[in-house]
Structures are given as C-alpha cells and as structure tokens.
Design a protein around this nucleic acid. Sequence first.
DNA 1: ACCCAGGCGGGCG
DNA 2: CGCCCGCATGGG
Length: 314
Amino acid sequence: MTDMSTITIPVNHFYLKDTFESGQPLSFHAHYDKYSDTLTYITGMEIVNLRFSGTRIVGNLVAAGSGTRFLSNEISTRFRLNDDMEHIYDRIATDDFMKSAIEKYDGMRLTINDPWETALCFIISQYNNMKRIRGIVKAIINKYGDAIKDENDKMVAKSFPTSATMASASERDLMECGAGFRAKYIKEAAAYCTETLDLDKLKSKKYPELKEELLEIKGVGDKVADCIALMGYGKLEAFPIDVWVKRTMEIEYFKGRKKTINELHRFALKKWGEYAGYAQQYIFWQGMHMEDVTNSIEGPEDKQEKPAPKHKKK
DNA sequence: ACCCAGGCGGGCG
DNA sequence: CGCCCGCATGGG
C-alpha cells in the first residue's frame, strides 16, 4: 500500500475544529483528533484523512482508494473550498453581533454531505440534542452500515446505510438505536426516498423547488428541509431556524421579543440574502456558546460512547 | 422531580 | 396563518 493517494490544497479562512464540531452531518460519521488537528471521515465506501496545517489541507485516502482526482474533488466540494470567504464575510458582517461571531469562528465552513445522509441526520435531530443525535446516528450506522474493509479484508469502518436498507429496518430496532418517536419518521422517509423520490436527482433544482420537494417527505418540516437544502445540496440561501437561532435572533435583533418563524425568515432573507445559510451557521454556533456550557458537545473525546439502548419494560 | 434538546404532524380558531 | 399539544429519551 505504498500507493496511498495524497493531495495538498492551499486554503485560507479554514478552521477544522469548528467546522467539525458545529453540528453538521459531517461530524456524525467521523472522528476529529484535536491534538493532531486531524479529521478522519467516511464518504460512501471511502475513508478520508484530513490534516490542516497553516495554509493548506493535506488529504489522504485511507484503506480503499479511488485516486487523487476523486479525493481533490471530494474535499473541495465537501468543504466548499471554492467559496470566497472574504466576500461572504463582507456580505454577512452586517452588525456587531455578526462581526464578533465571524471573528470568533473565522474559518468555520459549511459542509456539503450526501443528501440522504443529511436527511436522516436531521430527521433524527428534531427535538433532540447534539450528543444524543450523534449517539443515535452512530448506532444506526453501526447496526445497518456495510463493512468497509482494508486490503487485508479487515473491517475498518462502516458505510452510511442506504434509504433502501433503512426502509426495511424494524421500528423496534430503530427504537433500540435510541430513535424514539422519530423511528416511524425514519422508516417512512426511507421508503419514500427509495420508492418515490430520488434525492440525488434533485441536485439541479433551485432552492424554492427543492425545498418544496423535500417538504413532501414525512418527518421533514420547514427547519429540517432547510437543513437538507443547505448541508445536503449547498443552497446558501436556505436559513434553518432552530431553537438556538430563534432565541439568539430574538435577543440580538428584537430586544428579546418573541418572533414567528416566518418573521425571522423574512428578516434573514432581507439582511443576508443569498448567503443567509452562512449567517445562520455563525448565529447558531455563537448562540449555543452564549448559553452556559450545559449543552457543550465535547464530541471529539468519545471513544465509543454508546447510545444506551436500554429496553424498558411496558 | 422538573426542564430541555439543530421539530414535526395534527388539530383548532 | 399562528398557536397548542403530544411525542421518546438521556442529561443537567
């Protein structure tokens, strides 16, 4: 295996830690080592190892390998390396709050992930917290994913399960993965995305039509549809509003007064326009850190944190 | 024991 | 449209 594929890509405004930790589906199937600043993640049946050093990204293809051309495309697409961050920051630094968020988390990128993976991750995210979302997704991957093997036929990881696989999962097994009341949403969404709607064929659609299609999926509402549009299809005008974004916006822009989702959407679109999605990510991450550290994810440490299946009686 | 989490579907006014 | 409710589950 002396033939490991390695590439180097020059970048600026790139910071691996916040990109990994900020609640994007990328992190649900990956491991980040903060000491070496190295990220190892799974994409399809490939394993990619990423190291960030100063002004460049060094990427390796581990175990299997589809070559440097695949790797270069994979990394620059996934981490949006062609985005002009200077321009985007200029455009969304509309006030002191945004300026401080950008300064604090400079280099945090939005990522683009497989549409089905993104859909499943965000269906699980509803009325849930980061730590549990990670645990549930990892349990599902572990239970339903296919083995990814190295050249010695030894399993080194598991792939993300397809919608077809998840459609035939039993609700009871999904409950044991910790999915809770979302188990039926997962099954229905998986069946729908297998039989009726091919998510990979929506990539050419524009945001409004894309969102409309996504909203047809049972268990996908306004917020999750925007998350999928943003992180599964890279639609930067999507502006997902979760409890953190809502709360933070009400505090920062409306003196703490309650606002409806619609009002906040209109406000965001007018303020940040075609880069609203980036604004959202910085508001979200800054907002979470403003609260006391109760929900801090502390993710990278997890050795094997299991979701504690615990089968209750009743 | 109570409250909350990257919400959604369903029902009602 | 806006509001209210129930929903599974683990952690603070």
